[in-house]
Amino acid sequence: MPKITYVDHAGTARTVEADVGSTVMEAAIRNNVPGIDAECGGACACATCHVYVDAEWVDAVGPAEPMEQDMLDFASDVRATSRLCCQIRIKPELDGLTVITPARQG
Rank of each mutant, 00 (worst) to 15 (best):
L97K: 02
G35S: 04
R30E: 09
M67R: 15
V58A: 03
A64V: 11
L94D: 02
E65H: 01
G106R: 07
L84G: 09
E17H: 12
I100T: 10
P66Y: 08
V33M: 08
I36E: 01
L72G: 03
V78L: 10
D95H: 15
G21C: 13
E17G: 06
E26L: 11
A64G: 09
C40A: 10
E39S: 14
G106V: 03
G21T: 13
A55C: 04
A27E: 02
P63F: 05
D54M: 04
T81D: 07
V58D: 01
A45I: 10
V78W: 12
E65S: 12
A10S: 10
V61N: 00
T15F: 07
E26Y: 02
V51S: 03
K91S: 13
D70V: 15
L97R: 00
G42C: 06
E26Q: 14
I100M: 10
I88F: 13
D37T: 14
V16Y: 09
G35P: 01
T98M: 14
R89I: 14
Y52D: 02
L72H: 03
V24P: 05
P66Q: 11
Q87V: 04
T5C: 06
I4K: 05
S22P: 00
D95M: 11
V20H: 00
C49H: 08
T101N: 03
A47D: 00
D70N: 15
A47W: 02
C46I: 14
D37N: 10
A28R: 04
V61Y: 11
Q105E: 09
E56V: 15
E93S: 13
T23I: 05
T98G: 06
G35M: 01
A10M: 13
G62D: 06
T98S: 11
A55V: 15
S82C: 08
W57R: 00
R83Y: 08
A55D: 13
A10L: 15
Y6E: 01
A75L: 03
V78Y: 13
A13P: 04
T12V: 11
P102F: 10
A55L: 14
V99Y: 02
M67Y: 15
T101F: 06
T98C: 12
A55Q: 12
M1Q: 08
D95W: 05
C40S: 04
A18N: 00
V16H: 11
